[in-house]
Amino acid sequence: MKKLRRLTALTFSIILAFSLSACKSSSPEGAGSASEGGSHVVYRTLDEIKAAGTINIGVFSDKNPFGFVDENGEYQGYDVYFANRIGADLGVNVNFVSTEAANRIEYLQTGKVDVILANFTVTEERAEEVDFALPYMKVALGVVSPAANTITTLDNWKDEDAMIVISGTTAETYLTKNYPNITLQKYDTYANAKNALENGNAVAWANDNTEVIAFALQNHGYTVGIPSLGSQDTIAPAVSKGNSTLLDWINEEIKRLGDEQFFHANYEATLVDTYGSDYEDSLVVEGGVVNQ
């Protein structure tokens, strides 16, 4: 009987220990953390990234020419060009993580990526959940539509028409707030949004003007009837809230790169074939300094 009691107690102890272990956070080994707004944010510090020898950078995989996967399965584009330079200057390998607009914040907060470089427009709401570095690009919203039915204003929108947006983008936020009468047709990926416009599922697509201008230039029969909608904003790298060591390093990196006109060189290497030279100075930000 005593042996049975001892065996029962031992079994209970093993089960309890296993249960407690299973309840622990599954944070990456050695990662830092912070509590923001009641949620637990996971991140790796600069030293931990260097020690690991790899930095995880979230980019788009379907947003040509900013972040996309080419026919050889390689990541390319303006954001990717910048990401590769970050890795080189840090002395680590870059692990590209494909992200969508709606999960950029989540990927940072859960430690899935160390940095987001995915055309991330700086807003006050987002800055409450992530830490933005200095900007490297300027952007506004724009609207593209078929040339046969070009949308040049949103003020006389027809009730039966729908506008395509990407979930989690500033276009969705702006239209919901300023044009609540417009029916939004929401998609998670840029590829699906493009297909929807091409298939005539909606009369127009609102997104960053850089994206819709690129779409119109690359696809015959489409026009950007509204090239600038709302305010002029900036695009910047983002890190997890509280990850000050990585944030400080990226800010200094952007300043250093500005001294060599890196982002103009980036534009020439990745964007000029799409936009030509006319848009270069209106889009590029060097050294984190926005010139009006």
Rank of each mutant, 00 (worst) to 15 (best):
G230M: 00
N72R: 03
T45N: 15
A102C: 04
A127Q: 15
V94P: 04
Q109T: 09
M163H: 07
D62S: 06
N266A: 12
K158Y: 10
I14C: 08
A162E: 09
D114F: 01
E71L: 03
N178T: 07
L271E: 12
G168F: 02
A118W: 02
L271W: 05
E124V: 06
S277H: 10
E29G: 03
N64L: 04
N84I: 02
A193P: 06
D79W: 05
N219P: 05
S282L: 01
A101I: 00
T150E: 11
P227L: 01
V41D: 12
D47I: 04
A17I: 04
I116D: 11
R256F: 06
Q218R: 12
D248P: 00
K158M: 06
R6K: 13
Y174D: 14
G30A: 05
T169W: 03
T45W: 11
E268W: 03
T123R: 09
Q232S: 14
D62V: 00
V94M: 05
L134A: 07
N219K: 08
L20Y: 15
N209Q: 08
T150I: 01
Y190I: 00
D281T: 10
S244E: 15
V212N: 01
R104V: 00
G91H: 04
F68K: 02
T245A: 08
M137V: 06
V289L: 11
D259T: 14
A204Q: 09
V80N: 10
V42Y: 14
R104W: 02
S145Y: 06
T210K: 04
L217Q: 14
N64Y: 11
R44K: 11
